[in-house]
Computed example of a mutant assay.
Amino acid sequence: AALDAGDTHYPPSRGAMPIRQAIADKMRREYGLEMDPATQVLVSPGAKFLLYAALSALLNRGDEVIIFEPYWVSYVPMVIMAGGKPVTVGLNPDDGFRITEAVAEAITPRTKAIMVNSPNNPTGHVISPDEAAIIRDLALKHDLYVISDEIYEKLIYEGEHINLASLPDMVDRTITINGHSKAYAMTGWRLGWAAGPADIISLMAKLQSQTVTSAASFTMAAGAEALNGPQDAVDAMRLAYKARRDFMVPALNAIPGVECHRPAGAFYLMVRFPGLSEDSMEIADILLEKAEIAATPGIAFGRAGEGHVRFSIATAMNELERAVARIEKLLRK
């Protein structure tokens, strides 16, 4: 409809007001937060740029950013590109990749922010109220910002999503990053958004206006409709991913020499192959060459990911069944 109406011209750099209002309405409806769409919301061609823009807005050269391992592969390069120093904190796979109070040991006088991704890529971990409280307490005690990457928020199978900005006293120090790629399967539309303190959003908007300019006008029209319209399709997709997870995890764990972590969200599996190797690069090579299965080496997500490979289950069930059969055949050899 937007294309038919000729909505193909330059939009406001911060985003068209209908989608900014839709985002503000979502934050109020789902998390009880009052966000001014004019000053506290920014729409961009993808959430990825907004993560970088938030880091660029927050960091002075040499400022440190806490990043939990395993982490999405772009976090560390983004911090470095923004002039900061990534400080990674490894999470224990045998403890379900849970955030513990040990993270406090990584904080120094140069720490400026904590990056949180829940549900997590690659682990599928969903932070609990206790973990959220740890992050909140550290942010308040040490005057830190939190960059909360919530792109997988609608893909949760156990537990509840916690928007960190909605915790007491956190709205003025939390930048929520989200988008349409995962919840609405709009990956090619390139549509992300940020909500946070007006002064930080203003700095991010300045960077956006001088670089990527804006999201596409007709994409934003579709994005507003997605947020405002019925959400039945989102839940149907969540249930489809849950069914794939519920098939894959026990099927892989039933194969001798395979250990699969059970994710609470997102659409990835972190899998060990002690029957093959503890070297994730070697495991990925073996799977590709001998079973024709593509996997991402765990070391790509930091040292805490070593020994694992990441599988995506964002594919048809019959393909997943074929993958299990190939892995079983490989391990029998």
Rank of each mutant, 00 (worst) to 15 (best):
A1F: 08
L3A: 13
D7K: 11
M17I: 06
Q21L: 08
I23A: 15
D25A: 12
D25R: 03
R28H: 12
G32S: 11
D36G: 11
P37D: 14
T39V: 02
S44T: 13
P45G: 02
P45I: 05
K48A: 07
F49A: 04
F49I: 05
A53W: 06
S56C: 05
A57E: 01
N60L: 12
E69F: 01
Y71I: 00
Y71V: 04
Y75D: 11
V76Q: 13
P77H: 13
A82S: 15
P86G: 00
V87M: 02
T88N: 14
T88M: 04
L91N: 09
I99L: 02
T100M: 14
E101W: 14
A102F: 08
A104Q: 15
A106Q: 07
I107G: 05
I107V: 01
R110H: 15
T111S: 10
A113P: 07
M115V: 13
P119Q: 07
N120D: 13
P122I: 07
T123Q: 14
G124D: 01
G124A: 05
I127K: 05
D130Q: 13
E131Y: 06
A133K: 15
I134E: 02
I135G: 00
D137I: 00
K141W: 00
D143M: 10
I147E: 09
I147R: 04
L155Y: 04
E158H: 08
E158L: 09
L167A: 00
P168D: 14
I175G: 01
I175D: 02
T176K: 12
T176V: 13
I177A: 15
N178G: 13
H180C: 10
A185D: 08
M186F: 10
W189T: 11
R190G: 03
G192P: 02
A194S: 15
A194T: 10
P197S: 07
A198P: 11
D199L: 02
I201P: 06
L203S: 12
M204G: 02
K206G: 09
T211E: 09
T213A: 05
T213R: 10
S214Q: 12
F218N: 15
T219W: 14
T219G: 13
A224S: 14
N228K: 10
D232E: 15
L239V: 07
A240N: 04
K242E: 14
K242S: 06
A243L: 10
D246M: 03
P250M: 01
A251I: 09
L252V: 00
L252A: 04
I255E: 06
G257C: 07
C260E: 10
P263W: 00
P263T: 03
P263L: 04
G265R: 01
L269R: 04
G275N: 03
S277K: 05
D279L: 02
D279A: 00
I283M: 06
I283P: 00
I283V: 15
E289I: 04
E289Q: 14
E289K: 15
K290G: 08
K290R: 15
A295C: 07
T296Y: 06
P297D: 01
A300T: 08
A304H: 05
V309C: 11
R310C: 10
I313R: 05
E319D: 13
I327N: 04
E328S: 14
L330C: 03
K333L: 10
